[in-house]
């Protein structure tokens, strides 16, 4: 592991992230780790296991289930929780379920507000969590590039981007007033390539949806949507086609675009990514509603 008394780039990033995770465990009373089941969450989970070994992860993992996640994601989540024995909390906005909120009838923006952003706020408030750890990276999106590692939220979970706390060295200010909370991003300084190479070198299990396979899809305004279950309404004359596709990010299946790809294993994914000329979040429909949409969501409490 040690090469001439120098850590490699990935070892440096890993150690930094572990330090951040330990700082959370040591400084907060009720931390929670957001578990979105995606590749970044898988890396985060792996880092948390390393940070506290041989202890178990000293905080629960929280999954906000919008009820429209890919079925493979849910299966993977439950298998992973069982294998590693962490404390898994799932939360769904029951008001949304009662009102039958879905992305088709209510639009992606309103659906996300209710089933994701509001649901997250509900879960954080209900759990009285004072720190929520997330897997966001600064290379993902412009407003994320600006966010602190320890990102302060007021009592209504809102982010004030114009007035962030200074963050010096790795001396994090973890102090809060009653009702306030912290969002913590241990892999802020990782790039997408770092995440993939780390998954490869550490052999971290990820949801198979990342790997190319024949899947039933429909193409809508240039985006490939996978028909994961019968809830996806088909337009007149639209029939699902089997295509070899994979996903670069995972979320709610009606809102997550697939890409045509033959990359069926990690090396091919990494190679494909190196050649790729589009950014990772392009496949996410929620970001493209308007310029600054991510920042707006974050101010409202979205991760």
């Amino acid at each position: 592991m040690l090469d001439q008394n120098r850590l490699t780039h990935l070892q440096t990033l890993e150690a930094e992230s572990i330090e951040i995770l330990r700082e959370v465990a040591a400084s907060f009373e009720r931390p929670v780790m957001m578990y979105s089941i995606g590749k970044d969450s898988s890396v985060l989970l792996h880092l948390a296991r390393k940070a506290f070994f041989p202890s178990k992860i000293p905080f629960p993992l929280l999954h906000v289930d919008t009820t429209f996640k890919f079925r493979e994601m849910i299966a993977f989540r439950d298998r992973t929780a069982e294998e590693y024995g962490f404390d898994l909390i799932t939360h769904t906005n029951q008001d949304g379920v009662r009102d039958g909120i879905n992305p088709f009838d209510h639009g992606s923006s309103r659906y996300t507000d209710i089933m994701k952003t509001a649901a997250l706020r509900q879960a954080l408030t209900a759990g009285r969590y004072d720190a929520a750890i997330g897997g966001a990276r600064r290379d993902e999106e412009k407003s994320r590039a600006k966010e602190r590692v320890f990102s302060h939220r007021n009592a209504s979970h809102a982010w004030d981007p114009k007035n962030q706390r200074p963050e010096l060295w790795r001396t994090f200010n973890t102090r809060l007033n009653p009702g306030e909370s912290m969002r913590v991003f241990p892999i802020s300084n990782w790039t997408e390539l770092d995440v993939w190479t780390y998954i490869y070198s550490e052999q971290i299990p990820i949801v198979p949806l990342y790997f190319a396979r024949p899947r039933p899809v429909v193409e809508r305004s240039g985006t490939l949507i996978m028909v994961d279950d019968e809830r996806l309404p088909l337009n007149p004359g639209e029939t699902p086609k089997e295509e070899v596709v994979r996903f670069r990010t995972l979320g709610c299946y009606p809102l997550t675009g697939a890409i045509r790809s033959d990359a069926a294993d990690l090396p091919s994914i990494i190679m494909e990514m190196q050649a790729s000329r589009t950014s990772e979040r392009e496949g996410r429909l929620i970001d493209s509603d308007s310029v600054g949409s991510m920042e707006k969501k974050k101010q409202e409490g979205y991760f």
């Binding site: 290379d139 600006k146 962030q164 790039t191 920042e295």
Partner: peptide
């Protein structure tokens, strides 16, 4: 310049990290 206020005012308010 990633924040809406920054783009509106054409200035940089907070540090942005790029890779």
């Amino acid at each position: 310049d990633g924040l809406v206020a920054e783009r509106e005012q054409g200035i940089t308010i907070d540090v942005a990290y790029r890779f």
